[in-house]
């Protein structure tokens, strides 16, 4: 058991190392663009969305599940918020009432995420559908509801005060990054310090043992999917605030990217292993790659190729490393 964690940590260190190298290479290749405040700032507006979605998927992977619907949740939350911002607020509202409207909108958006996650949790823990299928179905359902509400069109034109969330800075830190840091810190503490977090890991490590030791599996699972849904809702807030529009099928490629990030970050899709910090490093690595390649005028397709290669490369490295570690254990035991 101890060795497993040691491996995870060495995988993490390797990923961090690779991330630094990626950053250095990009900085060396396009120093005039990559190492500018402007680029670093624009990256800090871009990656929090993918980062939050990846952490959402990570939480569900810890129990051996997955949440394919999380982008659908983000979009649905975004659309409910958009409806409030464009339909419910009377003309000429400003000042404190506006602030209240915005808070109410955000609460509704995040609660939509929580409720959608609760539905996922029920389907998985109570009805007994496999997580991939349940969330594949709800992904269609949530996106479908969003399409029905908007008839496929985008909703745009939100209050200026709300757009601050997606486009401004607090003390040199972009607002989305600020939310990202707060949320990841919260999730990190929740996973490592609370009984819910520890139970999540236990269910992913050995489900039967966890159940026999008195963990109420259904409850923990439902909470984990609710948590994922809440993160989806928060992502929805950032997404619509940054783009000033809400669309039913925005960012559909985020699903696979978020899985990619969590696996890169050392999360075991079979459950039990993974840390928030790993996912944070992984999303940074991808952002550096992505921004750097944009500056090198690589097309999106070339990026797709490189991301896939990067994922397989890291997986193979981890595989070799873990096998070597396993061999060493066997030798020692001999």
């Amino acid at each position: 058991m101890k060795n497993w964690f040691k491996n995870i940590d060495s995988n993490l260190i390797r990923l961090l190392f690779i991330t630094v190298i990626v950053f250095a290479i990009m900085a060396a290749l396009v120093p005039s663009k990559f190492l500018t405040m402007r680029n670093i700032e624009s990256m800090s507006f871009q990656f929090p969305e993918l980062g939050l979605l990846s952490i959402a998927i990570m939480i569900t992977m810890l129990t051996g599940g997955i949440d394919l619907s999380v982008v659908g949740i983000a979009n649905l939350s975004g659309i409910f918020m958009a409806l409030i911002f464009t339909k419910a607020i009377p003309q000429g509202t400003s000042g404190f009432p506006m602030f209240l409207y915005i808070i109410v909108g955000i609460i509704i958006g995040v609660s939509t995420g929580a409720f959608a996650g609760y539905l996922n949790g029920l389907l998985i823990a109570k009805v007994g559908i496999t997580p991939i299928l349940a969330t594949l179905g709800t992904m269609q359902l949530f996106t479908g509801i969003a399409v029905v509400i908007t008839k496929g069109f985008a909703i745009s034109g939100f209050p200026e005060a709300f757009l601050i969330i997606g486009n401004s800075k607090i003390l040199f830190v972009s607002f989305p990054l600020f939310i990202f840091i707060l949320t990841t810190a919260g999730i990190s503490i929740l996973l490592s310090k609370t009984s819910l977090g520890i139970n999540l890991y236990l269910i992913g490590t050995n489900e039967k043992a966890a159940v026999f030791s008195g963990i109420r599996k259904a409850r923990v699972l439902i909470k984990s999917y609710m948590l994922s849904g809440i993160l989806g809702g928060i992502t929805g807030v950032i997404m619509i605030a940054r783009t000033n529009s809400a669309k039913a099928d925005y960012g559909s490629s985020y699903v696979l990217q978020a899985i990619l990030v969590s696996v890169l970050g050392g999360v075991n899709p079979a459950g039990g292993f993974g840390k928030v910090i790993g996912v944070v490093i992984a999303v940074l690595a991808l952002q550096f790659l992505s921004s750097g390649f944009s500056m090198l005028r690589f097309s999106n397709f070339a990026k797709e190729f490189i991301w896939g290669a990067f994922l397989l490369f890291i997986m193979v490295l981890n595989f070799i490393q873990n096998r070597r570690a396993a061999k060493n254990i066997v030798k020692k035991e001999d």
Partner: peptide, 9 residues
């Protein structure tokens, strides 16, 4: 996931 995006890319 990896090979799919590599092949398409």
């Amino acid at each position: 996931l990896g090979t799919g995006s590599m092949i398409r890319g």
